[in-house]
Computed example of a mutant assay.
Amino acid sequence: MIDPRERDESGERAHPPGLPVPLGRRVELPGRGTTFVREVPGPPGAPTLVLLHGWMASGGINWYRVFEPAGDRFRVLAPDLRGHARGLRSSRRFRLADCADDVAALLDQLGVRSAIFAGYSMGGPVAQLIWKRHRGLVDGLVLCATSHSFVPGIRERMIFSSLMAAAAGTTRIGGLMTALPASLVKQWVPVSTRGRPDSLQRWAAAEMRRHDWRMVLEAGHAIGQYDARKWIGTVDVPTAVLVTTRDRALVPTQQAKLAFSIPHASIHRIEDGHVACASPGFAAALLAACEDVRTAAVSAGT
């Protein structure tokens, strides 16, 4: 059991009492910078599961429901992606490909030869790009509440990307965006889950205050530009797609298109919206998808 009295390296309480979130550590990535990862060691010899969070979240916020049950079956790693929470900082413009390379560098530093990668929302494209750029690391993919193209249609893509680029440009000049509207945050991050204590809200808010908002807004622009339709059909590892059937941020039909585009991908469902990761039933749905991929990977000898 995780001790809620533990504190991170800065002396801050890393999670509220009773919240099953493991403490993390900072890891230096040569030539790239310093990142942060939470880890559950798992049973001896267990395969590694890398959890990649969504936009405006963090490894802790996105996966707090998952750490303990997943740790019974896997070695679990949940990094903060660049610009988010304690993730790597850079003066370069945010690119999803750089996130993929950061994760590959992290696994190299931790001595992990291969893993199953579970990506949620923005983490889905990062997982896809890890397969594309670092194929040898990938035993399988679990893609949750995500797609291979986030903003369908040229007109919609141009509008979304222009808005995000303008917002990111504003933060570069004046640091104007130190927080986002609560209505927008609620669409993406589980900062106010019904029935949870205020301590969870305070902890999640503290996580989000660590964001580099210039990089986060640039990440929104990168999501709007992302389009893997030309190559997603060449994915050749066991893959499961977890569809959030009540999703308004990324409609279920768009998520299903991702599954249909990847040969032999299995489809799993959870009756929830885009912040399904905050729901009590999320861990069971995710782990069912992970076990599907794990079994297929073993059968394939991956």
Rank of each mutant, 00 (worst) to 15 (best):
G24K: 10
E156L: 12
A265G: 04
C144K: 00
L242K: 04
A228M: 10
P22W: 02
P4G: 04
S91M: 02
P263Q: 09
V241W: 08
R229A: 15
S261V: 07
V216T: 02
T193S: 13
R214Q: 06
P44Q: 12
M177G: 00
A228D: 11
R95Y: 02
I159Y: 05
E291G: 02
A78H: 05
F117C: 07
A296T: 08
L250N: 02
P252A: 11
L129F: 07
R155T: 09
E218N: 01
P125D: 10
D72I: 00
E12G: 04
A165C: 01
P41R: 15
P69I: 12
S161I: 07
P47A: 14
T193A: 13
G31M: 14
A259F: 07
V237C: 08
V275M: 08
A297D: 08
F150V: 09
G42Y: 14
V40I: 15
L29H: 12
L287V: 09
E156I: 01
T295W: 08
G54I: 05
V191C: 04
R82G: 06
H148P: 01
R75S: 05
P16G: 13
M158T: 12
A182G: 02
G273I: 05
G111F: 13
G111N: 10
I61P: 00
V185D: 01
V189F: 05
W188A: 12
A145V: 03
T48F: 11
R135D: 08
Y226T: 03
